[in-house]
């Protein structure tokens, strides 16, 4: 500090201060604009995106969802479902649907990122709906403990306390959540795909959704504290293991105990 106070009257001090101020302001501005650009990338679409998306829609989706996405006997109307629904359904390969059945299965995505974005742009242009989430809520840096509490209250009854998935009625099921991207988890919560209820921002705030994604990513990265979790399916896989391996060990010891030594 002493050195600093001695040099503050140096002829170059004013210039140094000016340079420092410029650097800080410029740096902050640069950071701010890149953040805005990242947002803009996912939320705004050009007119050509909408046009291309419309063509893709007419060629691939209109059979079931109808021209203009107004719905038909075979598929629901998509007016107002928003870009998030398209990004989830098409991005996870659930749409276009493989075949009619209780539930659309996840499969390799049929459209590339560019085409998915164009389809989302087209559907978003039909009516207001949930948008693709911004990067800020997907950073996996929320409060994992709060996310765990929200998950156990709102999600665990279908998706299992360890997010391993579970059965529903008549062939439907809640899928396991390991390996699902944070963006798709967020979109599933806001749009309620298929039989999943909608968890709008009024129900679970964007901050809460960020916490849930943080929790899911954390348990996925850390694994089970007790070692092999056998699919985290509870008594079925654990019981099978104990009956086969546990009884096998007991039988082996019994044979050894009662056999004669040569």
């Amino acid at each position: 500090m002493k050195a600093l106070s001695q040099k503050r009257r140096h002829p170059l001090a004013a210039i140094a201060l000016l340079l420092m101020g410029l650097l800080v302001t410029g740096g902050l501005y640069a950071v701010a604009t890149t953040v805005n650009q990242a947002k803009a990338d996912t939320t705004t679409y050009s007119a050509s995106d909408v046009e291309e998306g419309g063509k893709l829609f007419a060629a691939n989706c209109a059979t079931c969802h109808g021209m203009g996405a107004n719905g038909s006997q075979a598929g629901p109307s998509l007016v107002g479902v928003g870009a998030a629904a398209v990004d989830f359904q098409v991005g996870t390969g659930r749409m276009p649907m493989e075949m009619n059945g209780p539930q659309a299965y996840q499969k390799p995505a049929q459209f590339n990122e560019e085409q998915t974005k164009q389809l989302a742009a087209y559907v978003a242009s039909l009516g207001p709906g949930p948008a693709i989430p911004e990067a800020g809520v997907l950073d996996e840096k929320g409060n994992a403990a709060n996310g765990g509490e929200l998950f156990r209250t709102n999600c665990a009854m279908c998706h299992n306390a360890a997010a391993a998935g579970g059965a529903l009625t008549r062939g439907k099921f809640a899928p396991a959540l390991a390996g699902v991207s944070g963006q798709h988890i967020y979109e599933a919560m806001v749009t309620g795909p298929q039989n999943m209820p909608v968890f709008s921002d009024a129900n679970i705030s964007p901050e809460g959704k960020r916490d849930i994604i943080t929790f899911l990513k954390q348990i996925e990265a850390n694994g089970s504290p007790g070692g092999a979790d056998l699919g985290a399916l509870g008594p079925v896989s654990e019981g099978l293991f104990v009956w086969i391996a546990g009884l096998g060990v007991i039988i082996a010891f019994t044979i050894w105990l009662t056999s004669r030594t040569s």
Binding site: L150, T153, P197, V198, S200, A202, N203
Partner: peptide, 21 residues
């Protein structure tokens, strides 16, 4: 009120297809 944080729920918060605990 919402489980677990206990904040009250407005009727307008409950959109069609929602499930609140």
């Amino acid at each position: 009120a919402r489980d677990p944080d206990g904040t009250p729920i407005k009727a307008a918060d409950v959109t069609i297809g929602s499930a609140f605990h």
